[in-house]
Write a protein that binds this DNA or RNA. Structure first.
Lengths: 112, 112
DNA sequence: CTCACTGTTTGACGATCATCCAACAATTCC
DNA sequence: GGAATTGTTGGATGATCGTCAAACAGTGAG
């Protein structure tokens, strides 16, 4: 099981976490990840946002570099999930407050 | 008693609050304001940051526009304070978590 | 081995940001 | 009334950001 590198718990920086969350696209991605609190494929099916795949890749990288998410490799697929425990340990209550403020995100089952 | 205009509680936007906090200078300003949780003069004496006064003015404006602070006018002086209750009402736990994450800020009495 | 798929990287582009400088504005002091 | 004080504003500057397009890279399927 292989993961892409990211900061350890003690390396998490408040400013980077806040900066990563201060973008509407990434805030929505975090909200979607929080819905099931499990891994989610990086594919457009997993994140219904109308952006170029390179833009999504950029945002995934920012979230990972800030330490908000962990990315696992499986063949040519990437799976990403929130680092809720790590963030809770480093900045207690921060992510929960942000997720509560986001409000109910749309469920992953999309019946439009 | 006259205040500069700012958003009402319901007008507070999560992304703007996070964006305002995602800057190291503003994060420090918020931390300093939280120390005494009272009004603080906008003068350089109240905020020991080595920046141009127009830059401080810019940051005060961003904090106020995001709804993090309220600014009161008194002659040619400005006094600013955190809107802790408003932020707690709108985004429960968010500001407390941020302030806890900032850690102990230096006390306002400066005996270097 | 080639092609398809999933993502990443690089560069270009326009927009936004933080900073400083100079000028300006309102208030206070003498 | 003029000077000083406290801030604000506009503009310039360089840096950063989000976006897309094209090219690239690793893995899987046939």
């Amino acid at each position: 099981m292989e993961f892409l590198p990211g900061p350890s718990v003690v390396e998490l920086k408040l400013e980077e976490v806040l900066a990563a969350l201060a973008d509407p696209v990434r805030l929505r991605m975090v909200g979607l990840l929080a819905v099931t609190d499990t891994e989610r494929s990086c594919s457009p099916a997993g994140f219904p946002v109308e952006l170029h795949k390179s833009t999504l890749s950029h945002h995934f990288k920012v979230l990972r570099a800030a330490g908000l998410t962990r990315t696992r490799l499986e063949g040519r697929n990437r799976f990403v999930r929130l680092r809720r425990e790590d963030l809770q340990e480093r900045f207690p209550g921060l992510l929960d407050a942000v997720l509560a403020a986001i409000g109910p995100a749309e469920p992953p089952t999309g019946s439009r």
